[in-house]
């Protein structure tokens, strides 16, 4: 474990807790894409298949349970909670799941480290996580109203993967045989997708104006 990865995990943890807190306290999911949340639930499900088979550390297991629990409870809130669901904007959140899931699945079947079910699922989860934010970014472009919590959520989500890139660089230089080019490429693509959001987020923060994404 290195500081970059710990900071990345904590940033990721805070991002999901910020979102859960928002939904739970104000009982609203305005501006949140259910599609993206469902994709994240799928990312964690396919990535943590080894949750009950390989024990790595208490930290690893606890964090996996938190990420699984939070992503599924966010989906539950938006789908099932009698108050929250009313604020879900299904007419605007229209990104088709299979436009993202199918290409990632095909890619995982073609490019992976080892052709086993768990390995292909793990690779699929990496590709999926890289693009899972797209429905959320599309929704933000459409609704154009980005409340603070949603802006912070997307920012923290992007920041966590950027910190992981520093972790991979660090591990590449400090650990022999640490070669994960699939992880690195997926992680870089993921962070680049946030780049324009980061730009507008910093602009709004610097000029102290409300965050507006160009149409």
């Amino acid at each position: 474990m290195n500081i970059f990865r710990l900071a990345g995990d904590m940033t990721h943890l805070v991002s999901v807790l910020v979102l859960l807190l928002k939904i739970h306290t104000i009982k609203s999911c305005a501006g949140i894409s259910l599609k993206t949340q469902e994709l994240y639930a799928l990312v964690f499900t396919t990535r943590y298949l080894d949750l009950f088979t390989d024990y790595i550390s208490l930290y690893n297991t606890v964090m996996k349970l938190i990420f699984l629990g939070s992503s599924f409870s966010i989906v539950w809130y938006i789908r099932r909670h009698k108050i929250v669901r009313r604020s879900y904007d299904k007419d605007q959140d229209t990104f088709r799941h299979y436009f993202i899931v199918l290409p990632c699945l095909v890619l995982a079947l073609l490019i992976h480290h080892k052709f086993t079910f768990k390995e292909v699922m793990w690779t699929f989860s990496l590709y999926l996580e890289a693009v899972a934010i797209l429905p959320q970014l599309v929704l933000l472009q459409r609704t154009r109203n980005i409340d603070n919590l949603t802006g912070q959520y997307v920012f923290l989500l992007g920041a966590y993967r950027a910190l992981y890139i520093l972790n991979w660089i660090y591990r590449h230089y400090t650990e022999p045989h640490y070669v994960h080019w699939i992880t690195w490429i997926a992680g870089i693509v993921q962070t680049l997708l946030y780049a324009d959001f980061f730009y507008y987020y910093f602009q709004s923060w610097k000029n102290n104006v409300k965050l507006q994404l160009p149409a």
Binding site: I56, K114, Y164, N167, H177, H180
Partner: peptide
């Protein structure tokens, strides 16, 4: 191919 990536990361 390279070693199977250890899955110690989240």
């Amino acid at each position: 191919g390279d070693a199977i990536p250890d899955k110690d990361e989240l």
